[in-house]
Design a protein around this nucleic acid. Structure first.
Length: 368
RNA sequence: GCGGCGGUGGCGGAGUGGUCAAUCGCACUUGACUGUAAAUCAAGCGCCCCUGUGGCUACGCAGGUUCGAAUCCUGCCCGCCGCA
């Protein structure tokens, strides 16, 4: 018996796309939906009320970060994530798997999970893959890492990740996985994939609470045959839904998603982890994705880039100085109905906090 | 008037005989950002072009010493401080 219910209400005639409703203990999510990322139990720069008002239905927080601070036991005492951060809607937590990548093979190397260029280019072996400064050490059983905050050593395993996520208490949780660099050698991706699969089974076995939905994560990097194998393996396990994770070549994301979604069971929700940008979302929806999360809108907004129908708008640029018009003319968000580009530009120049808030409100409204 | 200190790129401020178009910070210009190590990071920032181990002009002004001066000497101008 799953703690969530997923109902498909409409489907594309010739394709994988669908719209539905995901019912959780903390309310419904009309899918497809975008989950703003609130890593540390806060979507940076916004209050939960503002988040709700701009249309966010669900928030994703992070296991690794909340385990380090304030500690999952504290959140449990507070009554769980939603109560702790005063967000009354559905919540989810990533398993900490992504930090195996971001603090591991990607650490201090300017590597992201998405390789630009084409598939051919990305084939290049990553010679430094195993030997450079990183905060993670991976073995078959789990991961030993050093806190990026104070350097203390910690251990994360599938069992530990699930225990922490049960303490945090989100409605939807994820299995512990190992995303790889898009440039990692195939041999390494195969090893990582078999770990991810073993960890998926252990995550399921470790689960105790029955009021949380556990989603299994499909990996396989940029290799289609590995993706296919992974989708089949994960689909066969009794998860409440699925996450698609890992690394891609930019233009190939849509193909990987289509490939995986043709294999995953139709009646369970599918979450495309950490994606994405505007085009990625349109393509993902078309290929049957129900849920997205991504740091991109909140991060670029804080760094001065607003998203609009007409593309990116860098509010920091000098040209905005005397543009006394809304960031986007026909936008109904709080920022656009009350403030001008000139003002938001001024706030960014002056390093005023309100600038980050107004930029985030607009860009997240646009994305959601 | 005398004495002391000081005048360097938009600003602050290094440098005190050669490797100086000149450390660094700020400001400015532009770019990046995809399960947040991120209110972060990167590049540029005298002028010119064939964009380079390229050319030219620069360290208050004018002279001088030296193979070579932002750096030493002389005079002048300006600022601050002290004494008259």
């Amino acid at each position: 018996m799953s703690s969530i219910r997923f109902t498909i209400e409409k489907k594309l005639e010739n394709g994988l796309g669908r719209a539905g409703v995901l019912t959780t203990p903390h309310g419904n999510v009309e899918t497809p939906a975008f989950a703003p990322v609130g890593t540390l139990a806060t979507v940076k720069a916004l209050s939960p009320e503002e988040l709700w008002e701009l249309g966010a239905q669900v928030v994703l927080a992070n296991t690794y970060h909340l385990y380090l601070q304030p500690g999952d036991a504290t959140i449990a005492k507070a009554g769980g994530l939603g109560k702790f951060m005063n967000f009354h809607g559905p919540t989810m937590t990533d398993s900490g798997g992504f930090q195996v990548f971001s603090l591991g093979s990607a650490y201090k190397r300017g590597v992201t999970k998405i390789a630009k260029g084409d598939a051919e280019e990305a084939q290049g072996n990553d010679e430094h893959h195993t030997e450079h400064t990183q905060l993670m050490r991976i073995d078959e059983d789990g991961v030993t890492f050093r806190s990026h905050i104070d350097g203390t050593e910690h251990r994360l395993t599938p069992e530990k990740s699930i225990a922490i996520q049960e303490n945090i208490g989100a409605d939807i949780i994820f299995s512990f996985d190992e995303p790889t660099s898009p440039r990692a050698p195939r041999v390494y991706m195969e090893q990582a994939l078999s770990r991810t699969h073993a960890w998926a089974e252990r995550s399921l076995a470790a689960k105790k609470r029955n009021d949380q939905a556990l989603l299994g994560i499909v990996q396989g990097g940029r290799y289609h045959d590995l993706r296919e194998h992974s989708a089949q393996f994960i689909a066969a396990l009794p998860f409440d839904g699925f996450g698609i994770g890992g690394s891609y070549v930019k233009d190939d994301i849509v193909n990987v998603v289509a490939l995986v979604n043709r294999i995953l069971p139709e009646d369970k929700p599918r979450h495309l982890l950490g994606i994405g940008e505007v085009e990625d979302i349109f393509e993902g929806i078309e290929q049957g994705i129900d849920l997205f999360d991504c740091v991109q809108p909140t991060r670029i907004a804080r760094n001065g880039t607003l998203l609009t129908k007409h593309g990116r708008h860098d509010i920091f640029n000098a040209g905005n100085k005397e543009l006394f018009e809304p960031p986007e003319w026909d936008c109904a968000c709080y920022t656009c109905t009350h403030y001008t580009k000139a003002y938001v530009h001024h706030l960014f120049r002056a390093k005023e906090i309100l600038g980050h808030r107004l930029a985030t409100i607009h860009t997240l409204f646009f994305r959601v």
